[in-house]
């Protein structure tokens, strides 16, 4: 069973920095949005290598599915 992990760091002004692992592609942002109501309050999103790897994996999977049909 895969583990999803979010690390929230609350700085001295109450601002939150979040890093995630175990999520696939955009689902990490969705999970953070659910958790923190991000709409309009995100100042910066840095996508990690893992994010891009998962995206590539997903795209490849979609392409292979399309190839089958």
């Amino acid at each position: 069973m895969p583990e999803q992990k979010i690390t929230l760091t609350i700085d001295d002004d109450g601002a939150i920095t979040a890093t995630t692992s175990g999520f696939k592609g955009e689902s990490c942002l969705e999970a953070l949005d659910e958790l923190l109501n991000l709409e309009g309050v995100v100042s910066c999103v840095k996508k990690t290598d893992e994010y891009h790897q998962q995206q590539t994996l997903q795209t490849a999977r979609v392409q292979s599915l399309r190839g089958k049909s």
Binding site: Q4, I6, L8, T9, I10
Partner: peptide, 27 residues
């Protein structure tokens, strides 16, 4: 919110003294 969404929460502080919440859940 994390607990309501099924995460287990572990609280620590980092080297700068900031609060760190490590949320984990199995999917």
């Amino acid at each position: 919110k994390a607990k309501a969404q099924g995460y287990s929460v572990k609280e620590t502080t980092n080297s700068k003294g900031q609060i760190q919440l490590v949320l984990t859940r199995m999917v």
